[in-house]
Simulated scan of single mutants.
Amino acid sequence: MNIKPVPVSLVGQALTSGITPLYELHQIACELPISVLVDVKQRIGDWLASGGKETDPYIKQQVAYAQKVYQALKGGEIG
């Protein structure tokens, strides 16, 4: 699987969305490869454990990456 970098426009959408990033991740979690899900969840967990917030841009960037993988698996392109 060849995953391209997350487009800035997708990160921008995640930053302005009214739905929480973790909810968005939850919506697609069962469709992601386990390696991707484990990596994203570990990064998010580490961020939150270090004092970060669920709404920080870093969390949104991780969710945007997961969404990009999801779309690639479905055969679609984002942005």
Results as ranks from 00 to 15, higher is better:
Met1Gln: 08
Met1Glu: 11
Met1His: 10
Met1Ile: 07
Asn2Arg: 13
Ile3Phe: 10
Lys4Ser: 14
Lys4Tyr: 14
Pro5Cys: 00
Pro5His: 00
Val6Pro: 06
Val6Lys: 02
Pro7Gln: 03
Pro7Ile: 04
Val8Lys: 06
Val8His: 00
Ser9Trp: 00
Leu10Asp: 05
Leu10Glu: 05
Leu10Phe: 02
Val11Pro: 01
Val11His: 05
Val11Met: 04
Gln13Ile: 06
Ala14Trp: 02
Ala14Leu: 11
Thr16Lys: 04
Thr16Met: 11
Ser17Arg: 09
Ile19Asp: 08
Thr20Gln: 07
Pro21Thr: 00
Tyr23Glu: 11
Tyr23Met: 09
Tyr23Arg: 09
Leu25Gly: 07
Gln27Pro: 01
Ile28Met: 06
Cys30Trp: 03
Cys30Glu: 00
Glu31His: 08
Glu31Arg: 11
Glu31Val: 01
Pro33Met: 04
Pro33Ala: 05
Ile34Asn: 10
Ser35Val: 07
Val36Gly: 01
Val38Trp: 03
Asp39Lys: 02
Val40Ala: 10
Val40Gly: 09
Val40Tyr: 07
Gln42Lys: 15
Arg43Cys: 12
Ile44His: 04
Gly45Ser: 05
Gly45Leu: 05
Asp46Arg: 13
Asp46Ile: 08
Trp47His: 15
Leu48Ala: 08
Ala49Leu: 14
Ala49Asn: 09
Ser50Met: 06
Gly51Val: 12
Gly52Ser: 07
Lys53Arg: 12
Glu54Tyr: 01
Thr55Glu: 15
Thr55Leu: 15
Pro57Ala: 10
Pro57Trp: 06
Tyr58Lys: 12
Ile59Asp: 06
Ile59Ala: 03
Lys60Gln: 15
Lys60Ser: 11
Gln61Thr: 11
Gln61Pro: 02
Gln62Gly: 07
Val63Trp: 05
Val63Gln: 10
Val63Arg: 08
Val63Thr: 03
Ala64Cys: 08
Gln67Phe: 09
Gln67Glu: 15
Gln67Trp: 10
Gln67Pro: 03
Tyr70Cys: 13
Gln71Thr: 14
Ala72Glu: 13
Ala72Phe: 06
Ala72Arg: 14
Ala72Leu: 14
Leu73Tyr: 09
Lys74His: 12
Gly76Cys: 13
Ile78Met: 14
Gly79Phe: 09
